[in-house]
């Protein structure tokens, strides 16, 4: 049974989730990947305002394909999250509560998640055509020059994710594999 999540996604919301939970996200989330994260963190370091409010925000690590006529967005599945490891702790520290990606995260990111209360969600990698159906609206809010890597504001409806790492550091990549191997015994 999936848990319904409505944005804004508060620290209390984040702390209520456990690794392995299936969730459906509805509301507003923002896209950012490598190049946008670099710029956001430069702004944070300089003490300058960001192009979107980070408080209670969920960031989706994605660089979509261009929309065909009639589409809100093109294919839009998650990109590998470890490339954002250098940047995520600084954004979590200023209010980000959720990340959507795929793949492993560093110890530093997990520490920041535990300290501030944040969740790392996984969306199914390589399923961009399917996931795009849950994105109802997309508009660029910053860094249009980055093309696919520009920051977009997405309105999503029942966007399917799984909690991979929760705010206490439990990790589905470890528990899921162990559970499967135990099931063989």
């Amino acid at each position: 049974m999936s848990k319904k999540i409505q944005t804004p996604f508060t620290r209390e919301d984040a702390r209520s989730l456990k690794a392995g939970d299936s969730c459906l996200i509805t509301g507003v989330i923002y896209t950012a990947r490598d190049a946008a994260h670099k710029r956001l963190c430069e702004l944070v370091a300089q003490g300058k305002p960001l192009p979107m409010d980070m408080e209670n925000a969920i960031i989706y690590f994605v660089g979509p394909t261009p929309p065909k006529p009639g589409q809100a967005i093109g294919s839009a599945g998650p990109t590998t999250a470890y490339r954002m490891d250098a940047y995520s702790p600084a954004l979590i520290a200023i209010g980000q509560t959720g990340m959507i990606g795929k793949g492993k995260r560093s110890a530093e990111v997990i520490e920041a998640m535990k300290k501030h209360g944040a969740v790392y969600f996984g969306a199914t990698g390589g399923c961009g055509a399917l996931l795009s159906k849950c994105i109802k609206k997309a508009e660029i809010v910053a860094y249009e020059d980055l093309g696919a890597e520009a920051i977009r504001r997405l309105e999503v409806e029942d966007f399917p994710v799984t909690v991979i790492i929760d705010s206490e550091g439990r990790n589905l990549y470890e528990t899921g594999r162990a559970e499967y191997l135990r099931s063989l015994e």
Binding site: G63, G74, S75, G77, G126, A129, A148
Partner: peptide, 11 residues
């Protein structure tokens, strides 16, 4: 992707 002629993956 097959039905709508859209890319299977965004990458």
């Amino acid at each position: 992707a097959d039905e709508n002629n859209v890319s299977v993956c965004q990458d």
